[in-house]
Write a protein that binds this DNA or RNA. Structure first.
Lengths: 196, 196, 196, 196
DNA sequence: GATGAATGAGAATTCATTCAT
DNA sequence: TATGAATGAATTCTCATTCAT
């Protein structure tokens, strides 16, 4: 029982560090974030950090791994099951925007670069690693015309990043953002024109 | 004449710092970049940095100002003269990709986050400040349908960032990148399908 | 118990810094003293200084506060209880010279200005802040004739500083210094003439 | 003629540095004063400083020498000619207070230690070097009773320093200060009581 | 000589990491 | 294991001094 309690606490501490690190990386980026920033956002003491992670790099990697193991597979499955380009796009953008909303990336920094969403964030790096592969497979299945998959996945990633920032600023939900991005990729600005 | 030589050297040193700072910011981002990194990328001594700039923030601002004073006005003019959405898009994307090519953003860092183009870079922040205003004006002129300009400019920025990274990796020129992005915004994936 | 030991060590380190700072300020004065000088006079590492004080100014202030809270009240009480001018003077000078002896201000520097007692020392600034007020009160009680209290307190301070330096050089105790200063203020050079 | 002009300029520059250095030393003390502070208080360029003085120490020494060669001899002569203790004291204090007034030591610093007159100033160090010797001679001549000359000269120096600060704050001339100090040394607080 | 930019040693400060408790 | 103070290397910045013009 004591062991159980301990295990629980251990797990909770590790989780607390991961949550704090996500917030701090989103806020400051990997480069500017310090271990102190992370631990300050936690009820723990500085030394405790090193009971769970060897370094800042390791937390970064751990977040990346976590995302890669939980969110990415779900997303890959949805994409694999997509019957149309629209489903593929809506699933991809929808998952990303919902993830961003869930993270509640409250940007509060006053640094000059903080005016835009941080890309040097573990989730983001992990999250889009699989996109191109999925896109290639979708092209092979005939969901998409034969477009350069590097450029297309890059464009999707860019739209996702920037639109998500707008979404947070505006406080709107994930749905409008998803619909906008999906329509843009399906039909360009014509498809975005208001009906009528 | 003596003064002339001195002025020249002075100007050259300032320029050397600016060039080095651009490279370092592109490499590491604002947060992770250090003044030492900048000065190390220069033949100058450490103290010399402070003859020209008070801090890292100040170089950042100086680059931003320079970009805002040189590139942005040209871009704004081209956009103002655009007769069609295609011209507007091609001018915007073309200018950005050519700028990126000119900067030769040789990504060489080994830090985990460096795998993607840095957005917290002075040029980028400055460069897209004016886009939304130009877009609103273009919508008013009837070049674009009545699309949410926040979302649309965000999408353009995102595509520009990410495509430019691909462009650099692939070593292709600015033209293919510009054409891809323009076509995407004009007609979506259908417009991107290879002819035939 | 664990906490007790830690607290002790913490307190000891803070004390070590304060002691070293006193010595360094006495040696070099506030202006020339560096944080490095202080920490070098200590077995601690450079970063440890900043666990206790934010800056040189803050140690200075801390010493001043300490003096103001311990020595000054005792001195004020003795002065308030003085029944004669002689008691007032002897208490003031006696306290100061004893304080200086206790500090063991071993002047050892080789800088040109170090040949005289440093006045820009936190103890000294704090110590004489209250003198004039006490003097005014003593004049009101009739202990002193109606002398300009600004000049009189200034003169007392000056004599205290300079005599204390002589005292240290000569290695004599506080008593002769106190007697000399008291006699000087009571009756001038006549009162200082050796008996007979 | 050209040579004459140059000589003049040379002399003027040297003088400008000396004047500026006096002010800066009085303001900040030797330790905190920087060569930049001195040169900033001058119309000259930084490099020019080193055409006249090898270092900060050397200006300090130069001021000391100048004082020792001009003011001290006059003072020594006056003291040697003094027929009474009062003349000796009045000459000593009078000379010092007039010197301080002439220097116009406008204290304007905001540093914690700046609230009192700087003693680590070349003039002060030089000026009181000769006092004790003169005092010993005066005792030998019978002007003063047989008082410990170390203590007595220290007391005179201290009173001179501190009273001069009061004098400057109050904006009164040198005469009241001289009279106060002289009376104090002649007869103590009794001699300072207002007549009647 | 005069100038003022360049230099680089050194001072102030931060921060990842260690370690005694 | 948790703690948080200590550590010292790395960073930012200052300043005496040099040197090309």
């Amino acid at each position: 029982m004591t062991a159980g309690r301990r295990e629980l606490t251990k797990s909770q501490n590790r989780q607390a560090i991961l949550v704090a690190a996500r917030q701090v990386f989103a806020d400051l980026g990997f480069g500017a974030a310090t271990v102190r920033d992370i631990i300050r956002a936690t009820p723990l003491a500085s030394g405790t950090f090193y009971n769970y992670f060897k370094s800042k790099e390791e937390v970064y990697q751990a977040i990346r791994d976590e995302v890669a193991l939980t969110i990415v597979p779900r997303l890959q499955e949805e994409r694999a099951n997509a019957a149309t380009a629209e489903e593929f796009l809506a699933a991809s953008f929808g998952a990303f925007f919902e993830f961003v909303v869930a993270q509640q990336g409250e940007v509060r920094s006053d640094r000059p670069e903080a005016s835009r969403l941080r890309l040097d964030t573990p989730e983001v790096v992990a999250g889009f690693g699989a996109l191109r592969a999925d896109l290639e497979s979708a092209i092979a299945r005939g969901l998409f015309p034969n477009i350069d998959p590097h450029f297309l996945s890059a464009a999707m990633a860019g739209v996702a990043f920037e639109i998500s920032e707008q979404m947070l600023r505006r406080g709107c939900g994930a749905a409008p953002a998803r619909d906008f991005a999906t329509a843009l990729f399906l039909g360009g600005i014509k498809a975005l024109a208001p009906p009528g």
